[in-house]
Design a protein around this nucleic acid. Structure first.
Lengths: 243, 243
DNA sequence: CGACACATTGACCAGACTCAAAGCTAGTGG
DNA sequence: CCACTAGCTTTGAGTCTGGTCAATGTGTCG
């Protein structure tokens, strides 16, 4: 029976060198596994959580809601991510996290996590590094939202997820789970669902991707990457990403 | 003669409780002061710096450049910020930092900073917290780019800077330095300079702001804030921001 | 078989872009 | 002290990407 820290370890190992000391320390983490249904919130803006959520399986996104109830998804999360690591150091969450499909999550108390971090200071570096990378991802989303066309932006998201899935060993880089509706995609891209539909058709028409029944299949990664102006440097993944 | 750690301390103090132990530790930081001219880069994407830059005076922005040489500014930095704190934990920078006006900066070696952080572990929490907040700022920029109109987005930037300047005691909330051309503003908003000009005229026409000779003057913060859908929660500033 | 949610299409609209020209303004040198 | 310049700002006119509204397909599940 594998411990849930395995996926976390795989994640941390993809962004920085880890040792057996850290591996063992992570196994001291305890937490309850919880299941969430599609559409359910894991945590909500304004909450003051005493614990963090480690995604084990499924698919989760972070989002912010505007007063007019329009929604902006600011990040997608693959298994191994801790979307609300944030809450360790700020009282009040400034965003919400929701499952886009049936997902399982381990709930780890701040206190438990703090204790483990204290016992192995090298882990602090790794987690801090993780925070820095998530900041880099947001930065890149700002660039994508500001300077890419709809088609490029969509292609960029597909490239990013391919790289991130690969980093935790959950994809060969070509096929991966993406249980997200066009409505949700539009909330991530800052577009309308109608335009997302047309944009998807364009990528399909160019034989770059397929997307159906919750899966993405990249048909030509090189051309997709070129179209998206995708440069994986911002993900700071150690192992080389398969071209 | 005040030590450069004063401004840093003011910054850290605005985001989390600090003690005299931390204050004293920060005074152990050493570094050379460097001046940068308008338009000069402090560090560049792809660099692998051995030191961080603490902004003392002036105005600095982080940006990413696309292959077609279009530019996206992803963040503005006021004195007290360390725009490339990032470089402490990732080898290669994934963005560049430039001065938009004559600025002075203290260059602190990673090694020196690491030593100080090691001696006072509470400082690690503070700096980590700083990273988390900068991630929150990026997140909010994603939302602004995706879901706000040009006018709202511009108003949002003015509100954010007002709050951040106030936090470090460099503004009463109404007037602050903003030595940024409309061209640069357009790179931050993901718009064209022409449209930024028209958008600025709209805010001026509504008697919400003035902007000239490198300064912003907010005429009606409440209305500006309402227009921008600005909610300062994401800045996680401890002291209440004057309404 | 229906119902519901999601995807797709069509027709029209608007916010932001492009290109190009003309005004300002601060700094420079005569 | 003024003319000149370079960079920044402003204006106008036409275009295009992406938005809006509304209807029609399609697929899945009870």
């Amino acid at each position: 029976m594998e411990h849930f820290s395995d996926i976390l370890m795989r994640r941390l190992d993809s962004i920085g060198p880890t040792s057996s000391v850290e591996r063992e320390a992570l196994q001291m983490l305890t937490g309850q596994t919880r299941a969430f249904e599609r559409g359910q919130d894991l945590v909500r803006e304004g909450d003051k959580p005493e614990e963090c959520m480690l995604v084990l399986s499924g698919f989760v996104c972070s989002y912010k809601v505007l007063p007019d109830s329009s929604k902006q998804i600011v990040s997608f999360h693959v298994p191994g991510d801790i979307p609300d690591l944030h809450s360790m150091f700020v009282e009040e969450l400034d965003f919400s996290v929701a499952a886009t499909t049936q997902s399982t999550v381990v709930v780890i108390s701040h206190e438990n996590l703090r204790r483990v971090l204290k016992s192995v200071p090298e882990l602090v570096d790794l987690f801090w590094r993780d925070t820095l990378i998530s900041a880099a991802v947001f930065r890149t989303w700002v660039m994508a939202a500001g300077r890419l066309t709809a088609t490029e932006h969509l292609a960029h998201i597909f490239c990013e997820l391919s790289a991130r899935y690969q980093a935790v060993g959950l994809s060969d880089g070509n096929t991966y789970d993406f249980p997200v509706t066009q409505q949700e995609l539009s909330d991530a891209l800052g577009l309308t669902p109608v335009h997302v539909n047309r944009t998807l058709q364009e990528l399909r028409g160019k034989d770059l991707i397929e997307m159906r029944s919750g899966k993405v299949n990249i048909l030509d990664y090189d051309r997709l990457k070129a179209l998206a102006n995708f440069n994986p440097n911002y993900l700071h993944i150690r192992k080389p990403i398969a071209a």
